[in-house]
Amino acid sequence: TRVETATETAWISLVTALHLVLGLSAVLGLLLLRWQFPAHYRRLRHALW
């Protein structure tokens, strides 16, 4: 049971790290898009909202 718990903890930390990385890359990508294509971003936002 001790090994299982350790594996579970490792998986949880791995998944958390993955989610953090994905979230950060998504935010960075959005910022980059907004910085590179302001007109396109505004049009996209206008279409979405």
Rank of each mutant, 00 (worst) to 15 (best):
43 R>I: 06
35 W>K: 11
43 R>G: 07
49 W>F: 03
1 T>Q: 14
9 T>K: 11
49 W>M: 04
19 H>Q: 01
18 L>V: 06
30 L>P: 02
28 L>W: 07
36 Q>C: 08
29 G>E: 00
25 S>H: 04
2 R>N: 09
28 L>I: 04
27 V>Q: 02
40 H>F: 13
20 L>K: 02
8 E>Q: 05
39 A>L: 15
40 H>I: 07
5 T>G: 00
42 R>Q: 13
24 L>N: 01
49 W>Y: 06
12 I>N: 06
44 L>I: 14
32 L>H: 08
45 R>A: 07
10 A>I: 07
41 Y>S: 08
48 L>C: 14
10 A>V: 08
31 L>H: 07
5 T>W: 00
44 L>R: 02
35 W>S: 14
8 E>A: 04
44 L>E: 00
34 R>T: 09
30 L>D: 03
5 T>D: 01
31 L>V: 10
32 L>N: 05
29 G>L: 15
24 L>C: 08
15 V>C: 08
13 S>A: 14
35 W>Y: 15
14 L>D: 02
18 L>P: 05
43 R>F: 08
29 G>A: 15
48 L>Y: 06
22 L>F: 05
38 P>C: 04
37 F>S: 01
48 L>Q: 06
19 H>I: 01
31 L>T: 14
14 L>H: 04
40 H>P: 14
6 A>T: 13
4 E>I: 12
45 R>M: 07
41 Y>F: 13
43 R>P: 06
1 T>L: 13
45 R>H: 06
46 H>A: 09
9 T>N: 10
29 G>R: 04
39 A>V: 15
19 H>C: 01
4 E>S: 13
31 L>Y: 14
3 V>M: 07
30 L>S: 10
41 Y>R: 05
31 L>M: 13
5 T>M: 07
2 R>F: 13
13 S>R: 10
2 R>D: 11
2 R>T: 13
18 L>M: 12
3 V>N: 01
20 L>W: 07
12 I>H: 06
42 R>E: 13
34 R>Y: 06
29 G>D: 06
25 S>D: 06
3 V>D: 00
2 R>S: 13
16 T>P: 05
42 R>C: 08
26 A>V: 13
13 S>Y: 13
36 Q>Y: 15
48 L>N: 05
37 F>P: 02
34 R>M: 06
14 L>E: 00
5 T>P: 02
44 L>Y: 07
22 L>S: 09
15 V>P: 01
29 G>F: 12
40 H>T: 09
46 H>C: 10
48 L>D: 05
40 H>G: 14
29 G>T: 15
22 L>A: 11
24 L>Q: 05
22 L>W: 03
20 L>V: 13
19 H>W: 03
9 T>P: 15
21 V>R: 02
30 L>Y: 09
39 A>F: 08
33 L>T: 05
44 L>P: 03
17 A>F: 09
35 W>I: 15
37 F>A: 07
17 A>G: 07
18 L>S: 01
15 V>S: 05
49 W>S: 04
46 H>Y: 09
39 A>G: 15
23 G>Y: 02
6 A>N: 12
23 G>T: 13
35 W>F: 15
6 A>Q: 11
26 A>K: 01
38 P>M: 09
46 H>Q: 12
11 W>L: 04
41 Y>N: 03
15 V>G: 03
30 L>I: 11
25 S>T: 14
44 L>C: 12
42 R>A: 12
10 A>R: 10
14 L>Y: 01
19 H>T: 01
45 R>G: 05
7 T>D: 07
34 R>I: 07
41 Y>W: 14
27 V>D: 02
12 I>S: 07
9 T>R: 12
27 V>F: 13
37 F>W: 08
6 A>P: 07
33 L>M: 10
5 T>F: 02
15 V>N: 07
3 V>H: 00
33 L>K: 04
32 L>S: 09
42 R>H: 10
15 V>L: 09
47 A>P: 04
6 A>G: 13
30 L>N: 03
3 V>A: 05
42 R>N: 11
39 A>T: 15
19 H>V: 01
42 R>W: 10
13 S>Q: 10
10 A>F: 01
16 T>E: 00
37 F>M: 08
12 I>L: 11
11 W>E: 01
40 H>Y: 09
48 L>T: 07
2 R>K: 11
26 A>E: 03
3 V>W: 00
21 V>H: 00
37 F>Q: 02
18 L>F: 14
38 P>Q: 14
24 L>K: 04
25 S>I: 05
2 R>I: 10
34 R>F: 05
4 E>N: 13
20 L>S: 07
22 L>H: 04
45 R>T: 06
48 L>P: 03
41 Y>G: 06
33 L>R: 02
36 Q>A: 15
4 E>T: 12
38 P>I: 09
18 L>G: 00
46 H>R: 08
36 Q>T: 15
36 Q>P: 05
49 W>A: 06
17 A>D: 03
14 L>F: 00
7 T>I: 11
7 T>M: 11
27 V>N: 02
12 I>A: 09
37 F>D: 07
22 L>V: 12
39 A>Y: 11
4 E>H: 12
23 G>I: 15
1 T>N: 08
44 L>W: 08
9 T>I: 14
23 G>V: 14
16 T>D: 01
23 G>Q: 06
4 E>A: 14
